[in-house]
Amino acid sequence: MKKVTYFPGCSAHGTSEEFDLTVKMVMKTLDVEMEEIPDWNCCGATSAHTMNESLAYALPLRNLVLAEKLSNDTMTIPCASCYQRLKVTKVHMDENPELAKKINTTIVEEGNYKGRVAVKSMLQYCYEDIGLDAIKAKVISPISGMKLACYYGCLLTRPKSITQFDSPEYPMSMDNIVEALGAKAMLFDFKTECCGASFSISDTDIVLQLSGKILEMAKESGAQAIVVACPLCQSNLDMRQGDIEKKYKVKYNLPVFYLTQLMAMAFGFPKEKMMFSKHIVPVDGALAHIGEVIEEPKKPAKAKKAVKAESEVE
């Protein structure tokens, strides 16, 4: 059994309870024991680094120091924004010990930062540490028939120098996981476009435009639903979808799932345990496609021959 430190983040107790719940279900199935950081605090999110540089480092640093008190050498975080703040802090502290010393003066009682614990997003942990084969092995009721657009948002894979994970332009890790669950991942160009994040409250029009474009592209890809691994992406695409439809006079009806909700379903947990009742856009329409056979477009036979001919020449 693997052990990993868990940082749930504020939204796990708020808007994204269902994410937290299904992460726990999925990890248990995959034989991973999660140990929550005792008395963790908010990472500061966008607000801290917008307004106050020292605070933007100090808030995540306290969590990193608390995590070092547990024996595990990796920490996993479901929220993309928390992940980004903790990882940025870790990378900058490791690169610049002098800065680490300075910021450490804000949390003297908690102890000194050593840089021992690796920070990974939940997606990265599933993909790198658990692996596709182990995930596949646990699938007992595949979600085949579903056509999904995997939306990563900006913070899971960018900036590359910080995340060191997957592609910043066209990542495939989540696509590969949903395919392992039996679903079809659609070609989707807006995988890493920004949803507008915290402007949801402070300048809603920006979110309506940005998230609107993402919904538009997801619909165009032929997907029946969107999959995310970030609470803010979920609430912007789900809770604001009605406003977007009204503003641009369109109809999307695209439910927005957390990756772990779909994983838990494929692992055989009953639908009732996923807290789908919290979703604003109803999920039943998309789930009804489970079990359908997706017809693959036939590849043109001529093109194949041409490729063969070329290789023969070599």
Binding site: S54, L59, E109
Partner: peptide
Amino acid sequence: KKMYEMAEKLE
């Protein structure tokens, strides 16, 4: 609270 005070000092 202490962290906030100290961070303000650093700023």
